[in-house]
Amino acid sequence: MDILSEAIAAIRTGSPTSGLFIRHAPWGRRYPIVPGAGFHVVLQGSCWVVPPNGEPMALGVGDVLFMPRGADHDLVDSLDSPVTERALPGEPREIVGPGVRTVLLCGAYELGRRHSVVGRSHPLLDELPEFVHLPARPGRHPALRGAVDLLAAEIAEPRPGSDAAVPALLEMLLLFILRSWFDEQADARSTGWAGAFADPAVAAVLRAVHAQPARAWTVPDLSDVAGVSRATLARRFAATVGEPPLAYVTRWRMLTAARLLRETDSGLGAVARRVGYTSEFAFAKAFKREYGLAPGRYRRAEDNPPLVAV
């Protein structure tokens, strides 16, 4: 089982949004926090991202900026330019002006965090920094560059089939952004989720839990799957995944349950059984502790998701 694909599928909600934006200097836009994740790709020109706290970052042609928790920020053509307006749904696609032209591909994803009591989705996203900057470098991340080029072309000049192509390309873009980030981290260190993918014992446990969330997992069971001692598994799992193995089992069960509630019409008893609960009451209690809503209310709320600004 592909750990990264399963994790993305478990947290992806709603439909992603995207658009091409043309800006002529001077310009500045404030991007408010969104209930999901956002991204910017510079297709032409350059700009600066200015976080509320922290140093500004320069973005050049081909650079990708990903905000896994939808952090608020400013985008400006120059650090001397004032921020004039907030970027909102219905934002003008072009801002005219006398200066240099910048073309941006911007978009947003919903990632199942908005109902979580603790504001989390999946640990591989929770560990990411507020701003993931993937600079364009010759020979680096060719799949990500290819997805950006294809998506930009479909949005700039829609053709028959574009309504199907754009959502699929947005899904690919999210995958390639995450893969590129973890590849870069693997080059530098072996902790975090980059280390989880590379550690055979931890990866084996993750695949087993993802494949069988209803199984009554125990630490001895998981250490047998990993092929290492319980103490070794506990140490390596916590260092990479960020929590003990059985805590992750519970987290994965709740993520799987939330996905089933969003995407299927299965009754609550059936959902409970598919994630390892023989008692619907015990399942509802655990689910509410994580999401702040009873399973039925969560399902109704997900039928009417909020708009995510681009």
Rank of each mutant, 00 (worst) to 15 (best):
V241E: 12
G242I: 01
A238S: 12
W252Q: 14
A216Y: 06
A284W: 05
S223V: 08
A231T: 09
F197V: 00
W217E: 05
G242Q: 00
A204P: 07
Q212N: 14
A216N: 10
A270C: 04
D224Q: 14
T191C: 10
G195D: 03
T278G: 13
F182C: 03
A216W: 05
V249L: 03
A216I: 04
S266P: 05
D265W: 11
D224L: 13
A258K: 09
L261E: 04
T264G: 05
A198K: 15
V249C: 03
F197C: 00
A258E: 09
G192E: 00
D183G: 11
H210Q: 10
A194K: 05
S279A: 01
L268S: 09
F287Y: 00
R251V: 08
T218C: 06
V202A: 06
D199C: 07
R179H: 14
A203I: 00
A247S: 14
A196I: 01
V275M: 00
V271S: 03
E243C: 10
K288N: 13
A282S: 10
A272W: 02
T240V: 01
V241G: 08
Q185A: 01
A234G: 11
R251G: 11
A198Y: 09
A234H: 15
G276F: 03
W193F: 13
Q185C: 04
G267N: 04
V219R: 15
E290Q: 14
A247W: 04
R262F: 11
L175Y: 14
P213V: 06
D224S: 12
P200Y: 01
W181R: 12
A286K: 10
A272D: 01
V225F: 02
D224V: 12
A194E: 00
E184H: 13
R230L: 13
P244L: 02
V219E: 11
T278Q: 15
Q185H: 07
G269F: 03
R179Q: 13
R259W: 04
Q212F: 09
W181N: 02
Q212P: 07
T191H: 14
L222C: 01
P200M: 02
P220V: 03
A284L: 07
T218D: 06
W217A: 04
A234D: 09
F281M: 13
L268D: 09
E290G: 04
R215A: 13
R262V: 08
R273A: 11
A270T: 10
A226F: 08
S180K: 12
Y248W: 15
F182D: 03
A270G: 09
R207Y: 07
A257C: 02
R230G: 11
A234N: 11
F237T: 05
A226H: 07
V219G: 11
A284Y: 06
L174I: 04
E290T: 12
A216L: 07
V249R: 14
A272V: 00
V219N: 12
V202T: 02
T240H: 01
A216F: 07
F281H: 14
L246M: 12
A257Y: 01
S190C: 12
K285M: 09
E263G: 05
D199S: 12
A201Y: 07
A216S: 14
R179Y: 10
V275Y: 00
L178T: 03
D187C: 10
F176Q: 15
A186E: 11
A247I: 02
R236E: 11
L206S: 02
I177Q: 15
F176T: 12
A284I: 06
F283V: 06
G269N: 08
F287C: 06
A238D: 10
A239E: 13
